[in-house]
């Protein structure tokens, strides 16, 4: 419940403050958001599986964001930024779908 409250608080803060994204971070912010979403879904699935560990959730959240941003940055340096960005988004999307399917099976038994 506190997580949901935190999410709402973050959304409200973003709408209220309306900050401008620094130029350097602009290409990486969407990738980081998708990686964080993947970690969130993973945590939710772990909670329903009964194997939720807060430390694992924290590390997975941070590592997902950092690794995704690093991969995109590396791709930009190498010259394949667009392709690597697409690959990262595809993989994260697959993981999100897998976690969502597991959650669905837990909740709806189907």
């Amino acid at each position: 419940m506190i997580a949901v409250i935190g999410l709402v608080v973050g959304v409200v803060a973003g709408l209220w403050l309306q900050p401008t994204v620094p130029i350097e971070l602009q290409p990486y912010l969407p990738i980081a958001v998708v990686a964080a979403l993947d970690a969130l879904f993973g945590g939710l699935r772990a909670m329903l599986d009964g194997i939720f560990d807060d430390r694992v959730f924290l590390t997975s959240f941070l590592s997902n964001v950092v690794v995704a941003a690093l991969i995109v940055f590396l791709g930009d340096q190498l010259g394949v930024g667009q392709q690597l960005s697409t690959a990262v988004v595809v993989v994260l999307g697959i993981r999100i779908f897998s976690n969502a399917a597991s959650i669905r099976r837990h909740l709806f038994k189907a």
Binding site: I2, A3, G6, G10, V11, G14, L29, A36, G43, L58
Partner: peptide, 18 residues
Amino acid sequence: QLLAGVLCAVLGFALVVQ
């Protein structure tokens, strides 16, 4: 729970900003 709340707040913030 607090940790999850903080992380979700960060996620929501970044999502709206993006």
